[in-house]
Design a protein around this nucleic acid. Structure first.
Lengths: 244, 244
DNA sequence: GAGATCCGAATTGTATACGATCTGGCGGAT
DNA sequence: ATCCGCCAGATCGTATACAATTCGGATCTC
């Protein structure tokens, strides 16, 4: 009950002014819930009662509402009027749209990032690939979660290299929602293909074969989507099943 | 204007449940402020005092804060802790990032939209082009604003044709911020080139020349950006007050 | 007169209060 | 027994209250 003063309360320096007006404890709440969703510790459809969340963080509903609203903007939470907030439960169609968007955006991001790549960036990417490879060999639920997360981080890292904050925000959202979709619809087998493909992409960039890198990226995203089972809608909420 | 396809919801009439938890009067406030910003009726840097806005709409600060936070998420408003919300005042660098993002995304959107185009869609686009052409010939401040808006609507219309709601949301944000940037940095002369380019793009799609259409789109966005004067840092209200 | 300091009005940040709406169960009528 | 209305608890939506912070100006000092 006392593990809440992790964040210093009175702050002279402003921790993070990103212009969204979210900071301090409200940002902490948002980030904690987001991490829990992306990490699958909160299952889709789970109700996020304002009072309960507020009690956990020792804040009033006011801040909780703000955080939930922010997450709703990112597509990780769904808010229904007079009913409350729920962890998003993306439909197969929504999942397809997310990956379709990624196939459109990411090759372009790759090309833009390539123009800014320095040896230091390549080193960073290679390190990321090593981490991914290590997680791939491990077994167990937590390693699996870490692998999904690491796989997303690879894509985010490329977006970060572009230095384009607007695109980075889009990618943040897409990767977070992708993680949710993978957690929902992913088949437990065979997600290791991703790592090889990441390596190939970096190789292609380093070899200056940008077109090839772009094509590899599109295929890679296709493969991630192909690894899903989007036929069934996995809903733990009847209301989601019954609504067409 | 809001041609976003709404997801099928419950049978009970709910004004607009888009999953963001924003509806009713809060949505009205957000949309009113957004329109005012995009239409240049609110100049960049203008303070949006919560009490004042609330008084205008006869609501409490609670709802105003929510609306401002939502707008901050879209990049149209900047919130500084303990200081309040201001109409966004995008820096030249931010402007460049916005257009860079559009150059990356929009050719892909075009290709995707082309796959879904029906004769009805072409008719709709042609009508849009006629409207643009008409506004182009008119003079005056209000016609100018309408022209900027119509130009953005063309791009949004193409995004809508893809049927991809995720991408549509990204484009909504990009177009809104672009309008803000154009209002800030646009040179009053020569924005009519846009209309011709739009026509050429539609022609190319209809002729099945997708590659050409994509290239035209990239050039078009380049031209919009080239028409800005990004040398001046944060052009402010003086120029607009003094110039007719 | 220039500059520092302090105070009060204005504004924001957060919590709380209160009415509205939903949910689920109880009891009566058929 | 089943269906229906009705009430109570839970939860949300919005307004208001109070604390914290900022900002501008009056005052004081040199």
């Amino acid at each position: 009950m006392d593990n809440r003063q992790t964040k210093p309360e009175t702050l002279i320096a402003r921790p993070d002014a990103d212009g969204t007006g979210i900071d301090g404890s409200q940002r902490a709440i948002r980030d904690a819930i987001r991490d829990a969703i992306v990490d699958r510790r909160l299952m889709p459809g789970t109700k996020l009662t304002e009072t309960d969340v507020g009690a956990l963080f020792n804040v009033s509903r006011t801040l909780v509402r703000g955080a939930l609203q922010a997450l709703a903007h990112e597509g990780l939470v769904t808010v229904e009027r007079n009913r409350g907030a729920f962890v998003a439960n993306p439909s197969p169609e929504e999942a397809r749209q997310i990956f379709a968007t990624r196939r459109i955006i990411e090759p372009g991001i790759l090309a833009e990032a390539a123009r800014h790549m320095t040896p230091a960036h390549f080193r960073q990417l290679r390190e990321q690939l090593v981490d991914e490879g290590r997680l791939m060999t491990e077994r167990g639920q937590s390693a699996r979660r870490a692998e999904i997360k690491a796989s997303g981080d690879f894509h985010l890292m490329i977006a970060a290299i572009t230095g384009n904050a607007v695109m980075q925000r889009f990618m943040d959202e897409l990767i977070a929602r992708s993680s949710l979709v993978i957690a929902l619809y992913g088949q437990s087998t065979a997600s290791s293909c991703g790592h090889n493909e990441h390596t190939q992409i970096v190789d292609a960039i380093e070899a200056g074969q940008l077109d090839r890198a772009g094509r590899l990226m599109v295929h890679h995203i296709h493969h991630i989507e192909a690894d899903l089972d989007l036929r069934i809608r996995r809903a733990n909420e009847l209301r989601d099943v019954l609504l067409p």
